[in-house]
Amino acid sequence: MRWIFVIARNSSFTYKGKAVDIRQVGRELGVRYVLEGSIRRAGNRVRITGQLIEAGTGRHVWADRFDGDLSDLFELQDRITESVVGAIEPSLRFAEIERSQTKPTSSLDAYDLYLRALPPLYTYSEAGFREAESLLKAAVEKDPSYSDALAALADCTGRRTLNGWIADQKEGHRLTCEYARRAIAADPSNAVALATGAWAYSVFAGDFDQALDLADRALQIHPNSIQVRSPAAWVYIYGGESQKGIEQLLVAQRLSPVDPRTSITRSALATAYFFAREFEETVRLGRQVLSEAPSHNVTRRYLAAALAHLDRIEDAREIIADLLKAQPSSSLSLSRTSKFRHQWMMDLYIGGLAKAGLPE
């Protein structure tokens, strides 16, 4: 996790087996959070417990336990690492957001502005995205090479464009790719920036070769983050590899089942199942997404198309009516600007929308 400074194991091992005060550990190592744990063994079974503590206050941020079999120690190590990293990353992010919100506005730096932008970004609403965009632009003004803020700005601009909350669609496409390019240039080792760039280049530019390269690089650097797995999955979906996208998204859900952006992961899954022609799954997931985040106009389109392909025309037309209320500019001609690697994907998508009653 590139945004976290981690103390080397030799320093942390000096506290092994000792009764220590977490506050003292935090002061001596100069860290804000301490991850501690224990191992108990019974025969060939092992139970590992872990907890993440805010050193300054002693507050528990996260705790969990993991059971495993020592018959394959390396597999167990990999699984524990994946589980711990996947769990503590969003926990740390929430803790840091809380910390930034207690600071007076006069002392906000680029990092604090970035953190304050995340909650409105997570709302997946037009107003939330506008607020997030303002904070992210302020962060980038303070630090033009802030890769995380630039990646979040690309994400925000792209989703505003997809949902019809930017009047000039072409400009939205251009800005999304530009912010993504700047995020990658600022830090080519930032897995989230690489994954966001992969998403942007595939969805808004149709540059699938570059997008796949970026997605693969991001997954090699940080495979245990939903912020990497989820945007990388979109690349595979729009590139015509639905099953590969589904695999990535199921791992993402397992890594962070309560992540604030699970609606985006479910929306991606609904889309992946649509192109896999599993329309019932698209309907199930699509309705779930809209119950959690009613502003997901992208999900409305795939839900309507899936219902139409299932010959549930009345239901499909109800979704189209909702879509036109939320995004009056929606049309078949606008939908044809979507970037898919294969013509059969466009035919399936537009065919379903036309059958559902979306006007030309």
Rank of each mutant, 00 (worst) to 15 (best):
F5A: 14
R9I: 02
N10C: 01
K16S: 03
K18V: 01
A19P: 09
I22N: 00
Q24E: 15
G26Y: 04
G26L: 05
L29T: 00
G30V: 06
L35W: 07
G37M: 06
S38A: 05
N44Q: 06
R47Y: 12
T49V: 00
T57Y: 12
G58I: 09
R59L: 07
W62K: 09
W62N: 11
G68E: 01
D69G: 02
S71P: 08
L73K: 04
Q77L: 14
E82L: 07
S83A: 15
G86T: 14
E89N: 13
S91M: 11
L92S: 07
I97E: 08
S106F: 02
S106M: 02
D112F: 10
A117V: 08
A117Q: 07
Y122A: 12
Y122R: 03
S125K: 04
A127K: 11
G128P: 12
F129C: 08
E133N: 06
P144E: 09
S147Q: 11
A149F: 13
A149N: 14
A149I: 13
D155Y: 15
R159S: 10
R160Y: 08
L162C: 11
W165N: 02
I166Y: 01
A167P: 11
Q169F: 13
E171M: 05
G172D: 05
C177A: 15
E178G: 05
I184G: 05
I184P: 00
A185Q: 15
N190D: 12
V192W: 08
A193K: 00
A193P: 00
A195Q: 14
G197T: 01
W199N: 02
S202A: 15
S202P: 11
F204I: 09
A205G: 07
G206F: 00
G206L: 00
D207E: 06
L214P: 06
R217M: 12
R217L: 10
R217I: 08
A218K: 07
A218V: 06
A218L: 09
I221D: 04
P223E: 01
N224M: 14
S225F: 06
Q227E: 15
V228M: 06
P231V: 09
A232Y: 11
W234I: 14
V235S: 03
Y238N: 03
Y238W: 08
G239H: 10
G239K: 10
S242P: 11
S242Y: 11
I246M: 10
I246H: 11
E247R: 13
Q248P: 07
L250W: 03
A252I: 05
V258N: 11
R261D: 09
S263K: 05
I264C: 10
S267E: 04
A268L: 03
L269G: 01
T271I: 00
A272F: 03
A272E: 02
A272N: 03
E281L: 13
G286A: 02
Q288A: 12
E292L: 03
R300H: 00
R301W: 04
L303R: 00
A308Y: 07
A308P: 02
A308E: 04
L310T: 03
D311I: 01
A316R: 03
R317D: 06
D322C: 06
L324V: 05
K325R: 08
Q327L: 11
S329D: 11
S330A: 15
S331H: 07
S331T: 04
L332D: 11
S333P: 07
L334H: 06
R336C: 13
F340Y: 09
R341G: 08
R341Q: 10
D347R: 07
L353E: 13
L353F: 13
K355F: 09
P359V: 07
P359R: 07
E360N: 09
E360C: 06
